[in-house]
Amino acid sequence: MAKVGYIMATSQYDKLEEDRKWMNDFGCVRIVEENDEDERNRPLWKQLMVALQRGDELVISKFSNALRGSRELATFLEFCRVKVIRIVSIHDQIDSRNELFPETRPSDVLEMMGALPEEVLALRKSAEHVVNLQEKMIVSLPPVSSAKMHKLDREKTVINLYVAGHPIDEVWRASGFRSQSSVFRILNKHGIKLNRGNHSGPIKRKGISDNPQDKE
């Protein structure tokens, strides 16, 4: 199955080129990279979780680079267990298939899990500092609220996943919306043609007919 890499490439991350080379040498068909602005919402990571299929192999720079806390770690490990996805963490030197890093001991894995919250917090603060600094330097642009950025990220996730051919149920789960109607609202807002199951063509308002005779 496919090998895919993921890197949270913040401005302060100094091993980007090293990780890219490692992933390419390992045979990754694609390397997904996100930057400081996406550290909180991580739209590409969410898309990747939806796109991964049974038996795929996911290469990450480090668990604390890819995940945002211990709770997300538990959910991620269960997800990979169910889908039989191999996890390779380069700098943690962990391979869920036990083929790489033979020198890694159980105590090393436990140490990684214990240090995860502190390392994630450091990464988050670093990314937020860079974003805040950039916002202060670009004084000519109006400020964009975090709520608006989150909204734009969710809309981008919905559109990208739908256009890529994912079922509505998967798009809905990845978006985080409470109802599927929000997914259809976004697709309609951006003029995306609906072509899934019973839904085809743009969403029509109630009382509007496609029959020209009805408009006379």
Rank of each mutant, 00 (worst) to 15 (best):
Val59Lys: 08
Ile31Trp: 01
Val82Ala: 14
Ser145Ile: 02
Ala164Thr: 06
Gln134Asn: 03
Met8Cys: 12
Asp38Trp: 06
Val158Phe: 00
Leu110Pro: 08
Glu57Val: 15
Asp95Cys: 05
Pro102Glu: 13
Pro143Ser: 13
Arg40Ala: 01
Asn35Pro: 02
Phe26Gly: 08
Arg205Leu: 04
Arg173Glu: 12
Ser64Ala: 08
Ser126Gln: 04
Pro143Lys: 12
Phe101Trp: 10
Ile138Glu: 07
Leu77Ser: 06
Arg30Glu: 05
Glu170Gly: 11
Val59Asp: 08
Ala122Asn: 11
Ile90Thr: 07
Asn198Ala: 11
Glu37Met: 07
Leu48Trp: 08
Arg185Val: 15
Ala9Met: 11
Lys193Val: 09
Pro142Val: 00
Val144Gly: 03
Ser61Lys: 14
Gln134Leu: 08
Leu100His: 11
His91Asn: 09
Ile208Glu: 03
Glu99Pro: 05
Leu133His: 14
Leu44Asn: 13
Leu58Gln: 10
Lys125Met: 02
Met149Phe: 03
Ser181Gln: 07
Leu67Gly: 01
Glu118Ile: 07
Ile90Tyr: 00
Phe101Thr: 03
His166Gln: 14
Arg154Tyr: 00
Val130Lys: 03
Arg173Pro: 14
Asn211Asp: 14
Arg154Ile: 05
Ser126Thr: 02
His190Asn: 07
Arg54Val: 13
Val84Phe: 11
Ser140Thr: 09
Lys215Ala: 09
Asn132Asp: 10
Phe101His: 15
Ala147Ile: 09
Leu16Ala: 03
Ala115Cys: 07
Glu119Val: 02
Ile85Arg: 15
Lys148Met: 09
Glu118Val: 07
Lys3Glu: 10
Gln93Asn: 13
Val158Thr: 04
Ala115Asn: 14
Asp38Cys: 01
Asn132Phe: 07
Val130Ile: 09
Ala51Pro: 08
Lys15Ser: 08
Thr75Ala: 10
Ile186Glu: 05
Gln12His: 12
Leu121His: 12
Val84Asn: 15
Asp25Ser: 14
Lys206His: 13
Leu16Val: 15
Pro202Trp: 15
